[in-house]
Structures are given as C-alpha cells and as structure tokens.
Design a protein around this nucleic acid. Sequence first.
RNA 1: UGGGACGUGGCCAAGUUGGCAAGGCACAGGACUUUGACUCCUGCACUCGCUGGUUCGAGUCCAGCCGUCCCAGCCA
Length: 560
Amino acid sequence: MNEVIEKKDFIRDIIDEDIKNGKHKKIKTRFPPEPNGYLHIGHAKSICLNFGISQEYQNATCNLRFDDTNPEKEEMEYIDSIKEDVKWLGFDWGENLFHASCYFDKLHKFAVYLIEQGKAYVDNLSFEEIREYRGTLTKAGKNSPYRDRSIEENLNLFEEMRNGNVEEGKCVLRAKIDMKSPNLNMRDPVIYRVKKSDHPKTGDKWCIYPMYDFTHGYSDAIEGITHSLCTLEFEDHRPLYDWFLDQLPAEWFPSRPRQIEFSRLELTYTIMSKRMLIQLVKENHVSGWNDPRMVTISGFRRRGYTPKSIREFMKGVGISKSKGYVEFSNLEYYIRQELNATSPRVMAVIDPLKVVITNYPEDKVEEFDVEINPEDKSSGTRKVPFCREIYIEKSDFMEEPSKKFFRLRPDGEVRLKNAYFIKCEEIIKDNKGNIIELRCSYDPLSKGGNSPDGRKVKGTLHWVSVKHGKKIEVREYDRLFKTEFPGKETGNFLDDINSESLTIKKHCIIEPAFFDYNKNTRYQFMRNGYYYPDPFDSTKEKPVFNQIVKLKDTWQNVKK
RNA sequence: UGGGACGUGGCCAAGUUGGCAAGGCACAGGACUUUGACUCCUGCACUCGCUGGUUCGAGUCCAGCCGUCCCAGCCA
C-alpha cells in the first residue's frame, strides 16, 4: 500500500528465508486457542501475528483451530466468543475453521500405528506412580514395569480403553521415548487418557482423549501448517513435537511444520492468566468476561477500544523472544492516537457546577456553530446552545488556586469554549461550606471567544447549557489493579485489586448535539477523554457512556 | 555441570557478512493552541549483564562468570 517499510521480526525473517530457498511456496499458520475461557489481549498478539502473516504473504492462509482435547474444561460458549473476538479484531479465517477434535479418528489411528511400531505402550501405573517414576529435574526417571508389554497386549489394552472398559485414571497410553532424558517432556509422555465426559463437538463418541503434545503437531501437519507459532513455555516441548512427527511417514502429511516460539504479551497493572481471569469472573470481582476493566477482547470491545488500535499496538510492541512487561500507557497511546483523529467532539460535564451569568439576559438563547472535529475538517459543525445558566466542571474552579492554575478563580477571567469570556464574581456555598454555584459576569464583546481589545485569557473551559443539556450516566474506569505487577508483594493478585477502579457518575450533562446518537460512535468529551455508549446498558432515553481512556493530562503532572 | 531460553536507555525493540548504538512509548524542556489535548522542535545508552581474549576496530567472534524466566498435569 504505502511505502512504509514494515519492521520485520525474527519469525518473518525465517519465513522469508524459507520462501527464498524454496522450502515453502505457500505459508500456512494457525491460531489454536483452547475453548476454555475468553480471549484476552495476550491472545490478540498471537492472532495478529498468525493472521497478520497470512495477510502479508502471497497465497498464505491462517487457520482458526480449536485445540479441544480436554472436554472437562471446554464449552460451546467459549467457542462462540472466540470466533466473535477474532472477527472483531478484523481477521477472517474463511473456510479454514477446524477443531482438533475433527482429527480424533486420525489421531487414534496414529496412536495405534505408534503401538504397532513399538513406540507406545499402555501403562497401568497410577497417577502418583507415574509421577514418582518420572524422576525429578535433576534425577533421571525409571522405566515403568509395563513398558515392555507386547505389541498385541498393548493393542488390546488400548482397544479396551477406547471401548470404555477402563476406568478413568486406571491406565494411559504413553509414548516410549526415554525415561532418562534431561527434558522431562521426553520421559514417556502420556498421549491418551481415559475421560468419560462428553465433548462439546464429538459428544459421547469418545471416552479417550489425546493429550496436547500428541495432538498439536499432528493437527498442524494434517492441515499443512508450515510455521507453528507458539509462546516460549513450549520451547521444551519442541523436541517432543518433532519426535511425534518423526514417527510417522512424512508422506502422510502435506507439510512438515516447524514450531517457533516467541514471548507472550504481558502488560503492567493487569494479569493475563486465564486462571486468574476466570477467577475474577467467577468470584464477581468484575461484572463478567466483558467487564470494561477486563483485558479480555470482549472487555476492550465493550469499553470502546477499536480493533485497529489493538492491531497497531501489537505492531508497535513487536515480536521477540525476550520476556517483559509492556507498559499499559503504551496501549493507551494507540487508542488516543486513533480517536483523536476520528472522534466527534462534544462538551459534557462530568461533575457539574452551576454558573449563573448575572448580566446575561434571562430568556436569551444563542447558538454557536462549533467544529465537530478540528482534526478532520470534513466533519462539519454542530450547533451549541448557550444561555444564562450553564454547568462547568467542578474541577475547573478553585477558590484558592496556585499560580499555575489557569482555570476559573475568584475575580479571574476565563473563556467558555466558543462562547464568551466570563469572570467569577461571587461564590455561593451551602451551609456546609460546599461550593454549589458561581455567579459570573460575561463580556458581550467577547462573543465567539475573543475579545476585540486583544486581551488574552489562558484558560478555556467546556460547558453545557443548563436549559439544553441532557442527562447521561458516565462510567469512569481506573486500572483494575493498583500495582504494576499484581500479586508480586503478597503472592495473591486479589490483594492488589483497585477498589476504586469503577466510578459511576449518574448526573453528567452533555450538550444536545450528541443526539445524532449512534451506538457505534466514540466521542471525545472535550478536555476529558474518549467515551463510548455502553453496548448493553445504554439506550437513547438513558444514555450510558463508558470512558475509553482519559485525555493525556499534563496538568496532573504539574500538580505533583 | 539436570535441561531449555533470555539479558541493548524507565518500558517495548531494531541492530544482515565485526566498522564505530534505529524507532516507538514514557519522561523533561520549549513553540503553537478557543481541548493544560493534538501537532511541532529539543533533550534522554561515550554504551549494549559482567570480566577477560581475538582484532586496526566487537553489541555483534571466543572463553569464563553473573542474573532472570520456563519445565517434574492422565492442562494447553
């Protein structure tokens, strides 16, 4: 498209090399989620990598494959949500939707073949015994007494397992590799276990299910995957991945896939573990998988993040093998960047403070034409009504401000955006001393926001007419955790939950112009941030906005 | 001497065959500004975990050391 030189990474370098030397003509990748939870932003990295590659190379494709080999944890709900999330992120698997469970028949045959080749055996050791026999990190394992059964016996026993005549946990099928291997994964890994539970896809057809290591490489090979990209913790599994592939005739498969590992995405101030995410949901620390504070794809979607901003973020982060935490502010940069360019501006007061302009006529109403988005001149203008009583933001007035504060102060003058200069004349308080209203005067000559005498005001405030403003609810979000690395101190991530991560503001006022109300519009509430109508709770009658991200706030830093 | 990997500025991350440290985020100054936003300048590693070695020259090669992470599920 454009002349931007895309930054490559070590994986794309490998692919380039494989194409250059003729190893592959068509590149095939896959995104292989296990449907045991919702996708999070860490998955998005893998999705962008795998599907991204399929878009960049000639005739390349990326399969969506559910790694559904453990029916106890997997559910249809998750399968559906994963599809929705991948699509939302902007990727399309076309016809290439698969399930590892599609290959259960083949996988079973492969297992039988391994037995026939003397490369697999049925083991009657108990769960505990298997662990004992495996040895430790520093001590070699020892062979199971059942390791040298005859091929016939193994075949019969495996058939018994398959037919449901074996109880769960009584025996497993194991690969016969090397109990003394320094790589624990090679110490006769289990490849089939008995599980008498129904599978979301295959129902009650099977009572034995293959393990990940056995399943994954073969599924890749069956699908003709050329590059099997996974995260670092599978590095130790690569020898096993290759071993399984080596045991079957290469002609049985369209490709010999190569596993390449990269580091997973970690973000500060959050957790990315599925186990912890599911705990947040199940224990009601959040409202659900799509709570806008969650780092799930559905959470970001509901919050108002755009798929593009997430994709751009992933490009910015890059792919490498060194692990680390990306600062959350890095992600926020990308959503601000996009929304600054695209979102309609609107004035909304989150914490209203009433201002009466004492010298402005009682019943007069003026309308100002205001740019919808100064970054996009084609967006046109909107009408903003002005009258004697308006709301400004509470935080835009200080009774005893520092010199650096250049918003409204007693006797101070400030500009109401696109309207007039006003000067604070009087502060009205309730009997507890709270400021409940301001009396100001305006300069009729400053209409539009400039004074003919050329005098400057430093501050410009957003405002909404009391008479014309509409009430909305705003939900403001802070980080779900108050520390960069939740759980680092106490060992329990729940200890670091930020109890103030959600603030509901029920009495916010927005200018009437936002009523080209569109569920899918992300607005900039001027001088505040970006906001998105909650897809579930917002209605035209009772609008509810989620804060996507605050505007960058240098004033915060000045205050410190 | 279990095995596997990683270690470039606060964070992420480029650094092909050794030639003398990209970029982004963050941060700090400044300009501009009817959003303290955006935009635009400027600054931000005499140094690449450490120590030696090879070389005219090393982040890139060699050796040793140090640090961090992953692996002992019939999870993926």
